[in-house]
């Protein structure tokens, strides 16, 4: 887990400092230097328009990391809202909301995200919206289960007795006691969110082709397959980022479930 934290920190620092560290402008074209293999001037080589791939990979983190985080945060918040209402109210509201979440889960992740982005039009914002649409149901189901466990305990009854409103009880008394498994799931999920975002972007449903986004860079690089550096470095960046987040996620999960250690 420490290794994961270090790796993620390194990635975030590299992305944050990209404007300072990057030797070139990630968008600057130089057609005379197109498709150059890695060298001292361009350590990751250059792409089909002569742009420096090292600079582009550094800048790529500025898109992919926030995108992955936004997906799990918005998906998590939406899921917590839906799941806690369903669990707390019970009855018809619960049935309806849970059946709805099942429908969303019946579609394979990327497929539903592809359908939603295709309907909204491809760009970064819509790719994130599409992934939030795909992401919330898992959280809703987790939170609902937690709320059901907590809501009949004595301290909730006590809150009722002192006259707290239902909303207050749900937000102040029930929810805080359901949060720890949700945080575990958030941590485990960031890697998957980044992976899926990169996949969508590889499929052309995210940022436009000029953008230094990793998945998009790989899909552009595929057209120059024999020039392996055009796709390899961006691809490895995604892999290393996801491995780092998965290390953290696994660590947090193991701490919570000692049987797995």
């Amino acid at each position: 887990m420490t290794g994961g934290l270090v790796l993620v920190t390194v990635w975030i620092v590299l992305a944050a400092l990209a404007p300072v560290i990057a030797p070139y402008n990630p968008l600057a074209q130089n057609v005379n230097d197109r498709l150059q293999p890695p060298s001292q001037e361009h350590i990751f080589g250059t792409d089909e328009l002569g742009r420096d791939l090292y600079s582009r990979v550094l800048y790529g983190g500025r898109i992919t990391i926030p995108a992955g985080l936004l997906v799990v945060i918005f998906g998590g918040v939406l899921g917590v809202a839906v799941g806690s209402v369903a669990g707390y109210l019970g009855g018809l509201a619960d049935e309806g909301l849970m059946r709805l979440s099942e429908l969303f889960m019946a579609f394979p992740t990327i497929i539903l995200a592809m359908a939603v982005t295709a309907a909204l039009g491809p760009d970064i914002k819509n790719a994130i919206i599409a992934l939030v649409v795909v992401w919330w149901p898992a959280y809703a189901r987790l939170v609902r289960g937690q709320v059901l466990k907590v809501k009949n305990q004595e301290f909730v009854e006590a809150a009722h007795c002192v006259g707290a409103s239902r909303i207050r009880i749900l937000v102040r008394t029930v929810l805080p006691n359901t949060l720890s498994p949700i945080f575990v799931m958030l941590a485990v999920d960031v890697g998957a969110a980044i992976l899926t975002f990169a996949g969508l972007s590889f499929l052309g449903l995210g940022p436009d082709p000029t953008s230094p986004e990793w998945g998009r860079m790989v899909s552009v690089g595929v057209d120059y397959f024999d020039q392996w550096w055009t796709w390899l470095f961006a691809g490895m960046a995604i892999a290393l980022m996801v491995i780092a987040f998965n290390f953290i996620g696994d660590g947090i999960r193991d701490v919570n479930d000692p049987r797995l250690r």
Binding site: G199, F202, V222, W231, G235, M236, V242, I243
Partner: peptide, 9 residues
């Protein structure tokens, strides 16, 4: 962790 398209490439 490794994207399936990167693994394929």
């Amino acid at each position: 962790s490794v994207p399936v398209f990167v693994l394929a490439l």
